[in-house]
Amino acid sequence: MPDGSFSHPQERQFNPYTENGGTILAIAGADFSVVAGDTRQSEGYSIQTRYAPKVHKLTDRAVLAVNGFAADGNMFVKKVKQRLEWYRHAHAKDMPLRAIARLIQTMLYGQRFFPYYVYNILGGIEEDGTGAIYSFDPVGSYERETCRAAGAAMALVQPFLDNQIYFKNQQAPADSPHPVHLPLQDVLSIVIDSFTSATERHIEVGDGLEIYVILAKGRSAQGLESIRNVQEMSTNPEGDRVFVIRRELKKD
């Protein structure tokens, strides 16, 4: 209008959120878990950096992948780690996985009316030695699952996992039923294929891949040594162990 006012309502509110792309995924095995994420951080069509890790080691048996609004994600991880440190000081041991899962739900729900705009996937080893995955929505709803994908390419990856992990739409031969858990080698192949495919079809996915493998205490690391770019992250090789595998993804 000539007087400087607008005839239509204008968006004036500061928007405290943004989306920073990327994808994360996790799969539980019988006595291991795999948690992975790409390392690209973007805003709109711009790649901000090719290396901003989304997967974080919390303890020797818990790994957290965080996807969504990066600033919230970083702050959330920082606060979870702080709470785990306080737990260590109070109890002289690491917090068990399912307790971390519940802690994360409490922390997320605590921000119910100004949520951390992040999707969390927690992976690791339970106290009974089984591999476990917990997935969360931004306000804390959570459940234990066998596999989960989240983030920008969730719609591309999850159906693939449903088919390959849960054997959805696959008819098992009468004499050999579908396995409940896949071996580590198969899981790693599925993870890598998921990310190369997502990189191919989603512009916000790419640059680098970090795959964390958490092995239950006593399980041999056999099969991991032969993989290139493996690095052990655990502090105690006698307990549950954490490894990270790094791969390049296409950068276009």
Partner: peptide, 25 residues
């Protein structure tokens, strides 16, 4: 390193803000 009004951070060997992120980066 980069920081903006949302608290978004990242690090890289080349950085640019605003229009420079499109044209110069």
């Amino acid at each position: 390193g980069y920081v903006d009004l949302l608290g978004t951070t990242y690090q890289a060997s080349t950085l640019a803000t605003g229009y420079g992120a499109h044209i110069a980066l």
